[in-house]
Amino acid sequence: MAIRGKLHANAAHLLHPGEPLQAAFCAQTTNPFLALLSIWIIIVKDAYRVVVVTDRRILVCRSGRLSMSKVGGVISEYPRNLRIGPPSGVWWRCETLGERLYVHKRFHRDVNAADAAPHIGN
């Protein structure tokens, strides 16, 4: 199963009844260029996050220490009208979700899809 499919399946337990998942993408809290120096930085710092976007809210969740596709507990929740992007570059630095997150280019289309999706007004 592709990573997007895993993220959607693993985030299902966070959704309220009738709440559709619009997008989910991975991010990390550690600067990716510093993380290249040592994998231990990522393991010790608990650096992976999963951002789950529904039509009602945006959730920033913990992820596994070694796997980005696990979706753990909710760290923060934001209203759906918050604009996340626009992303750019290979590693985009997102500052709109409470903590500095680095999002790789492979997830930029998910960020754009989340921003473009219709939502219920908050």
Rank of each mutant, 00 (worst) to 15 (best):
117 A>C: 12
122 N>I: 05
70 K>G: 06
110 D>V: 04
23 A>G: 01
108 H>G: 14
37 L>H: 09
67 S>K: 08
82 L>S: 00
60 V>R: 08
36 L>K: 03
18 G>P: 12
41 I>D: 00
71 V>M: 05
83 R>A: 12
6 K>H: 03
20 P>S: 07
102 Y>T: 01
104 H>M: 08
30 T>V: 07
55 D>M: 10
90 V>F: 15
94 C>Y: 03
42 I>W: 02
47 A>V: 09
66 L>Q: 06
2 A>V: 13
79 P>Q: 04
122 N>H: 12
116 A>V: 09
91 W>K: 10
108 H>A: 12
84 I>R: 13
37 L>Y: 02
67 S>C: 09
3 I>P: 11
92 W>F: 14
58 I>N: 03
22 Q>I: 11
48 Y>M: 07
79 P>M: 03
36 L>P: 01
30 T>N: 01
9 A>H: 14
13 H>V: 07
32 P>H: 10
12 A>K: 10
29 T>R: 11
12 A>E: 14
77 E>S: 13
114 A>T: 13
5 G>M: 10
64 G>A: 04
40 W>S: 02
19 E>F: 12
81 N>D: 14
63 S>Q: 07
24 A>Q: 10
97 L>A: 09
40 W>R: 00
120 I>K: 13
106 R>V: 14
7 L>N: 02
69 S>H: 08
1 M>K: 02
80 R>V: 10
79 P>E: 04
96 T>N: 15
11 A>G: 11
21 L>Y: 09
65 R>D: 02
72 G>F: 01
110 D>Q: 15
98 G>R: 03
